[in-house]
Simulated scan of single mutants.
Amino acid sequence: MAEIWGRAEQQDFRSRVRGCLLGGAIGDALGAGIEFDSLAAIRAKHGEAGVTDYVPAYGRRGAITDDTQMSLFTVDGLIRAHVRRDTGTWHPPTDVHRAYLRWAATQADWGPDERDADAGWLAREEWLYSQRAPGRACLSGLGDDRMGTLAQPKNPGSKGCGTVMRSAPFGLLVGWEPGLVCQLAVECAAQTHGHPTGYLAAGALAVLVHALAHGNSLEEAVQQALTQLAVHSGHEETTQALRSALEAARQGPPSAARVESLGQGWTAEEALGIGVYCALVAEDVRHGLLLAVNHSGDSDSTGSICGNLLGVQHGETALPPAWVVELEGRETILQLADDFSMQMTQGAALTGASAWLSRYPVSG
């Protein structure tokens, strides 16, 4: 695709990719320290405005959770899929599944296995070897080597938000058609969560990110997601969550009460609805992210989804610098974002490059 990407387009795309990944991680980190607290408890501890900055979690400020961990491995899997395509083989769900298995190893092992030549560079990042309240369905779905599929999904009754919080990177496949982006996110979500709402919410977020990456407004992106959802059976809960987010945005000034009217975010459609609502009514990135985390529920996941949306919409320079510099793993996130951008825009020039294949081995 290098021939059709001008320099300005490449720079814009890289800014949106960085914004999406960093924005999601910032929202994740803002919610990490209050994830299991009620709104009343948050306000009692942090003041009537709730949290207005990072609060300590996992021994530091700016700590990310499993939401960001899994999102990074989604990106790793997508890069490897494209590297593998350049070598003549192509099945992205398998590459993403292998990446998720590498994430699962970070939740069980003490550290990276330096003897594993197929691990690639991301799986050798020691700071990722830390449990950050991973979801049970994600762990059990990746507890063996069998890949869940739509025909035989893992955890067929689960619709937890562990699908949607990791699925924004699929939307960054801007050269794909929206329906294919949605389908890939859905297939990869079924690897851990088999309820239609669980995997369709993941597909919807991917379509939202895809539309925003193409310069559409968030309202236009929601309409595109609704169109894609309509062709899938079992879409009703996810469709209603998006419609409820649109309706809440029209009802008046944004508030925590309106956020909580959409649910708590523990399920996939509620997390999606809250993240979309907060991005819709955001005055700026800071306002949207703080609204997304100050509620009684899964604050890190709703913050992450809102951050993905605002980040891809406005690019990395719209993110509050003080939050960027204190974010755990910022260097890793930026390296991965830039590698993804380079593979998508200049992949042909990387074909066969030994250093690139060392970072993203085709055998892994």
Rank of each mutant, 00 (worst) to 15 (best):
M1T: 07
I4G: 05
G6W: 11
G6F: 05
A8L: 14
E9A: 00
Q10S: 06
Q10R: 11
Q10E: 04
F13S: 00
V17W: 00
C20Q: 02
A25R: 14
I26L: 06
A29Y: 01
G31H: 10
E35Q: 03
L39A: 04
I42T: 05
I42F: 06
R43D: 07
R43W: 01
R43F: 01
A44K: 15
A44C: 09
H46M: 13
G50A: 12
V55R: 08
Y58I: 01
Y58L: 05
R60H: 06
G62C: 05
D66R: 14
S71Y: 02
L72D: 02
D76A: 06
I79Y: 02
A81F: 04
A81G: 07
H82S: 15
D86C: 10
T87E: 15
T87H: 13
T94A: 15
D95H: 14
A104H: 15
W110H: 12
G111A: 07
D116E: 12
A117C: 07
G120C: 03
W121F: 07
R124S: 05
E126I: 04
A133D: 09
G135N: 11
G135Q: 01
R136D: 11
L139K: 15
G148Y: 06
K154L: 00
P156Q: 05
G157S: 13
G157M: 13
G162N: 06
T163E: 11
V164L: 14
F170M: 07
L172V: 04
V174F: 00
G179H: 11
L180Y: 09
A185V: 05
V186K: 15
C188G: 04
A190I: 07
T192V: 08
T192A: 12
A202R: 09
A206T: 07
A206C: 02
V207I: 05
L208C: 14
A211M: 06
A213M: 00
S217Q: 08
E220A: 08
V222W: 03
Q224G: 07
A225T: 01
T227M: 09
S233Y: 12
S233G: 11
T238C: 10
T239V: 14
A241P: 04
A241L: 01
L242S: 13
L246D: 12
A249E: 00
R250C: 03
P253H: 12
P254H: 11
S255Y: 04
A256W: 03
A257I: 11
A257M: 10
L262M: 13
G265R: 10
A268D: 04
A268K: 13
E270C: 10
G273Y: 08
V276N: 06
C278V: 09
H287I: 04
L290G: 04
V293G: 11
V293M: 04
N294E: 05
N294V: 07
H295I: 11
G297Y: 07
D298K: 15
S299Q: 07
S299V: 05
S301C: 06
G307L: 01
G311V: 08
V312H: 00
Q313C: 10
E316W: 04
E316T: 13
P321C: 12
P321A: 07
R330T: 03
E331V: 03
T332R: 13
I333W: 02
M342N: 06
M342I: 01
Q343R: 12
L350A: 08
T351L: 02
G352E: 10
G352Q: 06
S358Q: 11
S358L: 12
R359C: 03
R359E: 02
G364F: 03
